[in-house]
């Protein structure tokens, strides 16, 4: 049926090319141009450095301080050391252990302001808060990334299988993840941890597993749309095996939204695990995690409210960082081209 329209060579170019994988260079340029995303990267970089310092102190120094030669030099694990300012045995008001930040005073002891030795103050056992925050950063970032990683890999697998094969496999997996979703997240993980162990490792695993549905659903919808693309059919017609099709075509094309989700999810998971620690289901004392520090601070809100403030700010900075980067990535990878 002849169509009387104007034809140009553009129409003769041949079948449409598959949706191009968004180039990394292009994405990076977009992100580089976006000031808020850059700010987010700065924050994350900052926190990573802090985490590294925490790692050095918590692990390296801890290891080295075992040896007399280093201990004599003054190498010691800073965050754990209980630098008790006043002997609680002789001073019944152990509120004095809680030093306020530099320049401020504890309302019970107005004559003893905070000093630079403990710039953010000390906690209820005399330990320096700043040092504990440093260590907590490492925990938070590690835990956020590992749990997201677990969810991402397993979720991608589940979602890819469900989306590609469809049928009853799809139904079963989707119903399964929906039911998993129906039980409150926190409750699920707490039950998991009560069953297996109340420490950080199981927190990571538990949160990771509970986050699988998010990624599964994402990948599944991407797979469903990519599956219909011509080049996938062409590959199948050419005899390429299903597994290879998934690995080589489907997953790379679905990567962009997954990356965005993963970045945002790290932030979310940090919040969740902070909540778990707050309830006592995370890092066990004396390991400092931010949530746990906040839990401890509850009993001391009057003498030293600052104890409650700093860990929250640390969480805030870190999560804001991940959110900014995630948002920036999402904007950069948005295929919609503005005029």
């Amino acid at each position: 049926m002849a169509e009387t329209s104007t034809r140009t060579e553009a129409d003769d170019a041949g079948p449409e090319q598959p949706e191009a994988r968004v180039g990394w260079r292009y994405t990076l340029t977009q992100v580089r141009r976006d000031p808020t995303a850059l700010a987010g990267l700065v924050l994350i970089a900052f926190m990573t450095v802090v985490a590294l310092i925490g790692f050095v102190d918590g692990v390296v120094f801890d290891f080295l301080s075992e040896y007399a030669v280093f201990a004599d030099m003054g190498v010691r694990q800073y965050w754990l050391a209980e630098t008790v300012w006043v002997n609680p045995a002789t001073d019944p008001a152990n509120a004095r252990i809680l030093r306020p930040p530099v320049g401020l005073t504890n309302p019970y002891y107005p004559n003893e302001p905070g000093t630079m030795a403990h710039p953010l103050g000390t906690d209820h056992r005399g330990r320096d808060i700043l040092a504990r925050l440093f260590y907590g950063t490492r925990i938070a970032i590690t835990v956020g990334i590992v749990s997201t990683g677990i969810a991402m890999f397993l979720g991608t697998f589940v979602g890819a299988v469900a989306g590609y094969y469809g049928g009853w496999i799809d139904d079963a997996l989707m119903r399964g993840s929906e039911t998993l979703y129906a039980i409150p997240f926190l409750v699920l993980v707490i039950a998991f941890m009560t069953a297996f162990g109340r420490n950080l490792t199981y927190a990571m695993i538990g949160v990771g597993i509970a986050t699988i549905p998010t990624f599964a659903r994402l990948i599944r919808s991407r797979v469903l749309s990519v599956r219909e693309e011509d080049y996938v059919e062409a590959a199948r017609a050419a005899g390429v095996r299903d597994r290879n099709i998934i690995m080589r075509h489907v997953i790379p094309n679905s990567f962009a939204p997954v990356l965005v989700q993963a970045t945002l999810q790290v932030g979310v998971n940090i919040l969740i695990i902070a909540g778990l620690s707050f309830l006592g289901y995370g890092a066990q004392p004396p390991t400092p995690s931010w949530g746990q520090m906040l839990n401890n601070s509850r009993d001391y809100m009057l003498p030293n409210p600052w104890f409650s403030i700093w860990p929250g700010i640390a969480i805030l900075i870190t999560v804001v960082g991940f959110n900014l980067v995630g948002d920036g990535l999402r904007d950069a990878l948005d295929p919609r081209i503005n005029n």
Binding site: L294, R298, M301, G312, V319, D327
Partner: peptide
Amino acid sequence: ALFGVSTPSFWIGLMLIIVFSY
């Protein structure tokens, strides 16, 4: 909004208690 999704809810609670209650 950004800060809202990045702040732990229980911390907001603690802060509110410190400021508005105590």
